Simulated scan of single mutants.
Amino acid sequence: MNPFELHPRLSADTFLLAESGSSVLLLMNNALLPWFILVPKTDRRELHRLDPDLRRRVRDETDRLAAFVEREFQPDKLNIATIGNLVPQLHIHVIARYRTDHCWPAPVWGAPQRSDYETPEVERLRECALASLGEGFAPRPGI
């Protein structure tokens, strides 16, 4: 797999919001939960196997993404994970969870409830994320 090519499942299930030199930022197409995914630009499948410099940059981006999700959505809990059982490409989920959400306290994976995003909301989230993540990220238009 080319390090810059998204796994087909990630491409099918998400909106590409932004890109940095180290990763791409995705939004899961399920408006029931604020669910972002950071995909490092690598062919490595595990976070600890990244080159130390790339690992540091990706962890910094993950921290900035988590801080954005906390500020913007004020969740009861943040779920941050690199599961990858169905999608082997390294990707980091940052999900805002609420005690009132549709699958609390269970994991979000495999929950049948979903609601597609409308284009204006995707654009709003892209703008908010870019403003919050700051330097290094550029928009990736095209929904």
Results as ranks from 00 to 15, higher is better:
D43V: 13
D43E: 15
D43K: 14
R44H: 15
R44P: 11
R49W: 09
D51P: 02
D51T: 05
D51L: 12
P52R: 13
D53S: 11
R57Y: 01
R57V: 13
R57K: 14
V58A: 02
R59C: 12
E61M: 00
R64E: 05
R64P: 00
R64M: 05
A66W: 01
A66K: 02
A67Y: 10
F68Y: 14
F68K: 13
V69Q: 00
E70I: 07
R71N: 13
R71V: 13
R71H: 12
F73R: 04
Q74Y: 06
Q74S: 13
P75F: 09
K77V: 04
N79Q: 11
N79A: 12
A81K: 12
T82V: 10
I83L: 15
G84R: 06
L86A: 12
L86M: 05
L86V: 12
P88F: 05
L90E: 08
H93P: 04
H93Y: 00
I95T: 06
R97G: 09
R99P: 08
T100H: 11
D101F: 00
D101E: 14
H102R: 08
H102V: 14
W104Y: 15
W104E: 08
A106Q: 15
A106V: 08
A106S: 13
P107C: 07
V108W: 02
A111V: 07
A111C: 15
A111E: 13
P112R: 14
P112S: 04
R114C: 06
D116S: 13
Y117G: 00
Y117H: 01
E118S: 10
E118N: 06
E118H: 10
T119A: 11
P120Q: 00
E121P: 00
